[in-house]
Amino acid sequence: MPSETVPIEPRDSRRTAVREFKRRLIQDAAKQIFADHGIEAASMREIALAAGYSTGLIYAYFKTKEELYAEILRDSLDALYEAMVATTGSKTGQRAVAALRGLWDFYTQRPADFDLGFYLHGGARPAGLTRDLDHELNALLDRVMIHIGECLVSDGLSTPKKAHHQAVAYATSLFGLLLMTRTGRIKSVREEPELVLNTFLRAVTQKTPK
């Protein structure tokens, strides 16, 4: 009986896989360094040490720490959007609540992404990012708002003209609750995050377009 042959992976494919593996390790290390120190205080040398690579190798993947920071945020916003789309896909009549709940779940499960996404270690401003990078990241965030707006319209909770404005208003409220929860301030006003969230989501479903 002839032996089964195992296809040999092309050399280029192996190189690509190794490169992507190293890139991911660098991003994971950088994410922790940025979370601990913020973008301005972090250095490429620290990131290299945390990743277990030389500083020179880091620069072969990312020209600056700002470019690396932007890559992490880009991946985070892509993951947020994909998670929300997956959550709202089959929720007929409840897509808006599912989308907003998905936003909440994403950042409560990935608090470091929330901190980095809102530059909480850098005075809540996009320190060091170029205008082009900041514009690109803002566009990815707006894609999330557009999706929430589409869900509001499909649920009959808004009109196409007002949907984006309402989506931003609702998301802003959630970001505020996330910040209160992340900093522990919600406890200081004697409230539980989940109870406040549920009250908010019920209020969303009571809105009707005019």
Score class of each variant (00 low, 15 high):
I148V: 15
Y59L: 14
D105N: 10
N138Y: 11
K65I: 01
G102P: 07
W104A: 06
E66A: 11
G89A: 15
D132Y: 08
M84I: 15
L73M: 15
L140F: 02
T88Y: 05
E66V: 04
D75Y: 02
D75S: 09
D132I: 12
L120C: 05
K65S: 02
L129M: 09
T55R: 14
Y59K: 14
R125Q: 15
K65M: 03
L68V: 03
L140K: 05
T87L: 10
R74A: 14
L120G: 01
L103N: 13
I146T: 13
S76T: 03
H147W: 03
G89F: 08
L77I: 04
K63V: 14
P111M: 12
T87M: 12
T92F: 08
G102C: 13
R125C: 10
A79S: 13
R74W: 02
N138H: 12
D142N: 10
F106P: 00
A124I: 05
I72H: 00
F106E: 01
A86K: 13
D132C: 08
Y61G: 10
H121T: 06
E136T: 13
D78P: 02
G117F: 01
G128N: 03
T88I: 12
T92W: 06
M84D: 03
E82Y: 04
Y81V: 01
L100T: 06
A70M: 04
R74T: 10
E66R: 07
L116D: 00
A79V: 03
F118T: 04
I72E: 00
F62I: 02
L140D: 05
V97F: 09
E136S: 11
D132H: 08
L133S: 14
A127L: 14
G122V: 01
L77Y: 02
D78T: 04
L103K: 05
D75R: 06
L100W: 03
F114H: 07
A83P: 00
A112P: 05
V85E: 11
A99L: 13
A60T: 15
L140H: 01
R110Q: 14
L100Q: 07
T88A: 15
D142W: 02
A98S: 15
E67C: 03
G93L: 11
V85D: 07
F118A: 09
P111K: 10
F114K: 04
T88H: 05
K65H: 01
Q109T: 13
I72A: 00
L73I: 04
L73G: 00
D142L: 10
P126Q: 05
L57T: 15
T55G: 13
D75I: 02
D113A: 11
Y69P: 00
Y119K: 03
N138A: 14
A83M: 09
T87H: 09
M84V: 15
H121V: 04
L73C: 05
M84H: 04
Y69V: 01
E136V: 11
L133Y: 06
Y119A: 07
K91A: 15
